[in-house]
C-alpha cells in the first residue's frame, strides 16, 4: 500500500520546495499561453503549401555575389556625398488591391426572370500588351528617350530613390525609423541608433528591396483576380547574407509567394552593410502585390 504524498513529504522544507516547483511550472505555462495568444502562427497551424513555408535560409553559398562590390562602392559614395537637389521626383508606386467581386446579384422573383438594365457602366481597362507592344508608340518613345539621354546624363532611378530618401530623412519624415529607446539620440551623432545610422539603414533597405524586385519573375497567367498580396520579412547580416525568410502574411496564391521567395534567394547574398551601419542584423519587410497586366 502506497503512502500519501504528505506522509512522505512531511518535511516543511520539502513541501515548500514542491510548491515552488508547482509555481514555476504554472508561470512557465502561463508564459507559453501568452506567447500562443499573442503570436498565433506559433501555435502549430501550418500552411498547406509546406514547400514554401518555414523557409530557413542558413546560407546560400552557391550564388556568387556579382554586384555587391559595385553597389557597395556606390552606397559608400552616396553616403560620403553631400545631399544634392533631387533631379527627378520619385513617385512611390501605390499598391493596388485586387477587387473582390461580390456574388452575382440575385433576382428577387425566381419565377419571373428579370433583367436589370440600369447598371453603371464599368470602366474598361487596357491589357499590358498595349502598354508594351504598341510598336509605333514604343518606337517613338524610345527615340525620344534616346534624344533626351543624349542631352543629359542617364537618370539613375536607384540613385534618385536614395537621394529622395535622404532628403526625406533630413526633413524628418522618417521619425518612425528611429527606435523608441533611441529617440534621445543627439543630432549629428554618428554612433549606433543615431539619426545618421537610421538614415543609412533606410537607404540600404530601399536598395535591397530594389535588388529583390529586379530579380522578381512572376507569370501573369498564374495570377488570380482576387490577388491580395502578402508580407515577408527577411533578416540580413552585415556581410549581406540573408539568413531568414519569414512569411508574415501569405497571399493565398502559392505561385506568387514562391516567386517572391525565389526572388529573395536569387538576390542572396545582397550587398554588405555600408559604412556607418553598425547593427548586427537588419530585418527588412516586403509588401508584395504584383500589378496585374490589366492594372497597368
Amino acid at each position: 500500500m502506497s503512502k500519501s504524498f504528505f506522509t512522505v513529504h512531511s518535511d516543511p522544507y520539502q513541501k515548500r520546495l514542491f510548491f515552488w516547483a508547482i509555481g514555476i511550472s504554472l508561470a512557465g505555462h502561463l508564459i507559453l499561453l501568452a506567447v500562443i495568444v499573442m503570436n498565433p502562427q506559433w501555435s502549430g497551424e501550418k500552411d498547406p503549401f509546406a514547400s514554401a513555408i518555414d523557409v530557413q535560409m542558413v546560407s546560400v553559398k552557391d550564388i556568387p555575389d556579382t554586384a555587391s562590390g559595385k553597389t557597395a562602392a556606390f552606397v559608400k559614395k552616396i553616403m560620403s556625398d553631400k545631399p544634392k537637389p533631387i533631379r527627378k521626383t520619385f513617385k512611390k508606386r501605390e499598391t493596388k488591391k485586387a477587387e473582390i467581386d461580390p456574388a452575382p446579384a440575385e433576382t428577387a422573383d425566381s419565377k419571373k426572370p428579370e433583367v436589370s438594365i440600369s447598371r453603371k457602366p464599368v470602366k474598361t481597362k487596357t491589357a499590358m500588351k498595349y502598354k508594351t507592344l504598341k510598336l509605333n508608340q514604343n518606337f517613338k518613345k524610345a527615340l525620344a528617350r534616346l534624344k533626351k539621354n543624349a542631352d543629359e546624363p542617364p537618370a539613375r532611378t536607384l540613385e534618385d530613390t536614395i537621394r529622395e530618401l535622404r532628403e526625406k530623412m533630413d526633413k524628418g519624415e522618417f521619425k518612425r525609423e528611429v527606435p523608441k529607446g533611441q529617440r534621445g539620440a543627439q543630432k549629428g551623432r554618428s554612433g549606433p541608433g543615431s539619426k545618421r545610422e537610421a538614415q543609412i539603414e533606410e537607404i540600404y533597405m530601399a536598395l535591397i528591396a530594389s535588388e529583390i524586385q529586379e530579380n522578381w519573375a512572376y507569370a501573369d497567367q498564374l495570377s488570380s483576380d482576387n490577388e491580395k498580396g502578402g508580407k515577408v520579412a527577411i533578416t540580413i547580416l552585415p556581410d549581406g547574407s540573408i539568413v531568414d525568410i519569414s512569411f508574415m502574411d501569405r497571399s493565398g496564391n502559392r505561385y506568387l509567394d514562391e516567386s517572391v521567395e525565389k526572388a529573395i534567394r536569387k538576390s542572396s547574398p545582397v550587398q554588405p552593410y555600408p559604412e556607418g551601419l553598425r547593427k548586427s542584423r537588419i530585418v527588412l519587410g516586403l509588401n508584395y502585390t504584383p500589378q496585374g497586366v490589366s492594372d497597368y
Binding site: 518612425r176 528591396a209 524586385q213 519573375a217 507569370a219 501573369d220 517572391v260 509588401n287 500589378q291
Partner: peptide, 17 residues
C-alpha cells in the same frame, strides 16, 4: 515585428518564369 519597415514590391521585372 511592429517596427519592421516595409517596402512595396509591385512590379515583377519579368512576367514569365
Amino acid at each position: 515585428a511592429a517596427d519592421i519597415k516595409f517596402f512595396d514590391l509591385t512590379n515583377p521585372s519579368l512576367r514569365k518564369m
